[in-house]
Nucleic acid binder design. Structure first.
Lengths: 223, 223
DNA sequence: TTCTTCATGTAATTAGTTACATGATTGA
DNA sequence: TCAATCATGTAACTAATTACATGAAGAA
């Protein structure tokens, strides 16, 4: 077992800083909260806490349920200090993996129907995620959600996610309109000049709000 | 070498469907285009094409530059068929990894200054990416970009990315305002009721446009 | 000519996933 | 009491990353 902490280690340490959890409870949090911004497989949640214990950042207590053992993890003072140090460090840049987008990027090698189906799937995913986010927000407002004392942090992250899912759904709708206008052979697809100008113009206006551009060496999707 | 194709394999196959590339040129594309939606390390781009060749989906030709060999890969007809089949398959859901968000989620265990610095870093990243995206769009409009015949696909994906980067930057600005109002001890931070209601209300309006919600079992950040 | 950057790869390591196994609990 | 689901973990595997090595080209 390597002894260097990864972002995954700190993410779990962060959960332990909220309260002690059994491993299974950690997997629930991965499904319902942390996994939205740092997705990891269940088995990781059984493995990483052992590393935290080995480094003295967490301690494990054995419990039993029937004759079966289970482990509950809690953060240590040393763990809290390590977490605080990590929060002050620079972060690695966000990373997005979107198979839907990859398929759209190469859409000319499939059919128009394929492209529309891919967009519909992306939209459905986003709508479902958005509904979940909204429901979580409503629950907080109603005081029905756990960890009310963490509402400020949850609101910040939840708002981002909610906006992101809305963006994906709206983009998919817009992109579907575009694809509808493609000829049946997608290799012949060309964007309407006016549409292209419209999106670039929109990006220009966004850039004004954003400020801070310099010279850029461009590729297909960015410098 | 496993013989099952991953999304990474197909992503590279998609690039080869555009034109033949040397491995180094593939790494350039990863830096400038594909990497925005399917990021992978350089060394993967030296490894995966070999698998495609082994499966008959691509062929390799040896070239030399000085006395040093280099490999150029091209897609085969069988490769084009495989790519087309893949484009018709369902996609795995998008995945976001954002260390910045993880730190905001656990911000109460650090200082207010840490949180603001994390948000500033996220905003700077987004602004830079947005500038790159905009520049790429401008280049296309000016006819100065390569692969003009792929403009329709590039516009779809590029618009999504541009909007995403703008969203991140705008969110970071909004979140910074929120954090500014926190007390010096972030464990005491509570969102202003009005702000919380405002974001939930916005999500409700988005949901109306999106349609399609049902009953949801909520966690902290979603069902 | 030497230094730096561009270019081309391989090797070693690891972070993470998938698959498996099984006990406990609950409801029909 | 049987089946389904919840809960707790381990083992095997692999996809991917980091580190390393070095030739070629261009600039100072």
């Amino acid at each position: 077992m390597s002894t260097t902490l990864t972002t995954t280690s700190y993410a779990i340490l962060g959960l332990l800083a909220v309260k002690p959890w059994t491993t299974y409870e950690l997997t629930q949090q991965m499904d319902r909260s942390l996994g939205r911004i740092w997705p990891r497989a269940q088995s990781k949640l059984y493995e990483e806490p052992k590393k935290l214990v080995a480094l003295g950042l967490a301690r494990a207590t054995e419990e039993r349920v029937g004759k079966r053992p289970r482990t509950r993890y809690a953060i240590t003072p040393k763990g809290r200090r390590a977490l605080a140090r990590w929060l002050a460090e620079p972060s690695q840049p966000p990373s997005l993996e979107a198979e839907h987008l990859v398929k759209m990027f190469f859409a000319e090698h499939g059919t128009k129907a394929d492209a529309l189906a891919t967009l519909a799937a992306a939209r459905a995913w986003a709508a479902e995620r958005h509904a979940g986010s909204l429901a979580a927000g409503e629950a907080y407002l109603a005081g029905a959600a756990p960890f009310q004392q963490r509402a400020a942090q949850t609101m910040l992250v939840g708002t981002f996610l909610s906006d992101l899912y809305a963006l994906v759904a709206e983009w998919a709708d817009w992109a579907s309109e575009q694809v509808e206008r493609w000829p049946d052979d997608p290799t012949q697809a060309l964007p309407h000049r006016a549409d292209f100008e419209a999106v670039v113009e929109r990006a220009r206006r966004q850039a004004e709000t954003l400020g801070a551009d310099g010279e850029v060496d461009t590729g297909e999707l960015g410098r």
